[in-house]
Structures are given as C-alpha cells and as structure tokens.
Design a protein around this nucleic acid. Structure first.
Lengths: 132, 132
DNA sequence: ATGAATGCAAAAACTTTGCATGACG
DNA sequence: CGTCATGCAAAGTTTTTGCATTCAT
C-alpha cells in the first residue's frame, strides 16, 4: 500500500499525500497538472489546498515517485513513475498523451551524445501527432 | 536585409522589430529568452518595452522567422529559424545549448508515429548532458 | 491620414513561500 | 510532545492584454 512507499521516502503518510497518490493511480487521465489533481480532489469532497498539491508533487518528484513533464502547454504535468522508461506522443487535436518506447532511439541518443564528448543525463522526447 | 523579410511576412518594418532581429542574429548566445532580448536591447540604449518583445517574438514565430523552445527552464527560449531542422542538447552544468541533427533519429520518429496510426506534426527532442 | 505597432501599467496564469495552525509518529 | 505538514494568503515569475499614443506606409 501507499503508506509504505511514503515512509520509505522519508515522508509522513498524511491524508493529502495518500489522496494525491490515489488520484494519480486511479484517474483515467494519467498525465495531470497540479490544477487537475486539485480539482479532482475537490470534486471528491477532499478539502485540500493547491499549494499543498504543488509541494507534495515536488516532493514526490524528488523521491522518484512521480515524474514531471513540460509539454508545450505552459504548465507542468505529472504522472506516476514507472519502472520502465518511456517517451510521449501528444495528439495535437485532442491533447491526449500516448506513451511509447523504442530501444533503437534510446541507443541512438546515447551514441550521439557520446560522439559529442558528453554523457546523457536524461532526455525529453515529445512527438506531436495527428490521426492519419 | 531584414526589412524585406518582415514585409514578406505582412509585418511593418518597425524599429523594435528590426532591432530584435539584429539581436537574435548577432548575439553570441543564439538561444535567448524574451528577457534576454529585452536586456540586450536596453544595454544598447534601445528604449523598448518587454511586452513588445513578447508580441514581436510571438508574431515572428507565427511567421516562421523564429522558433520557440520550452526547455526545462520555466521560460521559453527563441532562436532564428534555420532552413535545416535540428535538435538540442543542453549542458546541465552550464546551461549551454548545443545543436545537432541525426538522420536516423528523424527517420525512426516518423516510423514509430506511423506504426501507431498517426502522422508526425512536429517534435521536440532535448538531450540533457554533462561532460565525460 | 489611417490602420497598425508601441509602451506602460494592469492583469492573468502558474508556482512558490511565510506563517500560524493542526496532524503524524 | 516535538516536529513535520497543511491551509491560507501574499508574493514571485513569466506572459498576455487594454488603452492611449506614436509610427509606417
């Protein structure tokens, strides 16, 4: 259960934190902004402050529990961290986010960076797509 | 000269617009935020408003004269549009931006998107790197 | 001259922070 | 109980907008 995960990260298992994890785990939209999470909690009758959402999500990111993405939307979106890395496609018509992974692209990125004399720390790849 | 380029885009060749193009063309740092451009102009004694910078850069983007990027910095950066497409590496230690292009990565992206039943509209690839 | 562009200031959107109160272990 | 977390409100950042004035054609 979530309580364990929080303790392990050195965070108290408070109600707001548990509720935020629930929302991220159970919402149909897995990529949510702080505002999205806030509204989802208010809707469920949970009395939480937006500032807390921001603080908690930032702590979760530092603890590796969630990942933060900056798509071209002017605001950050968060998703539960998965074991396996993946990249994203964003539908320009609906905003829907689609996850994908490609071994070959991952390999090429490392190779290119190496060729330039650097080490790859992390990367951000977003493909903006529309239906055929 | 720049005046022609502006006219062609249906924009009046005003002093602020010409100065902004000059800055983007001649600065040593080719990837600049609106604030960067603003400070560069103030430094040269050009009396321009920050709001104008934002308006002009947005118009330039729509006209294809500049490109806007959202690196993980909390603010947009702009660069003159080049004929040939390229992606970016960002040094995590210095913030320096390095441009690169890889035929194979470009091809793979199209292929993956196609495989999912979509068409690639555009993409954003940023590699965060540090020296070996 | 006329419509477009500018500068300023105000506002909007997103995120962070200070502080007193409340909850976890 | 002591400390850490929360909520609220205020402040910080980045970007946009309204409006009167100025400028390009």
């Amino acid at each position: 259960m979530d309580t364990k995960e929080l303790k392990k990260a050195g965070l108290k298992a408070t109600l707001p934190r548990l509720r935020i994890l629930e929302i991220l785990d159970n919402s149909s939209e897995k990529h949510m902004s702080a505002e999205d999470v806030y509204r989802a909690l208010i809707e469920v009758g949970e009395d939480v402050g937006l500032a807390t959402i921001y603080r908690v999500l930032t702590q979760f990111e530092a603890a590796g529990i969630v990942q933060r993405h900056n798509f071209d939307s002017g605001h950050a979106v968060f998703e539960m961290a998965k074991e396996e890395h993946h990249d994203h496609m964003v539908r320009v018509d609906t905003g829907e986010v689609i996850e994908f992974f490609d071994q070959e692209i991952e390999r090429l990125q490392k190779e290119i960076v190496d060729r330039h004399g650097y080490v790859l720390e992390e990367h951000s790849l977003v493909l903006y797509v529309r239906p055929k």
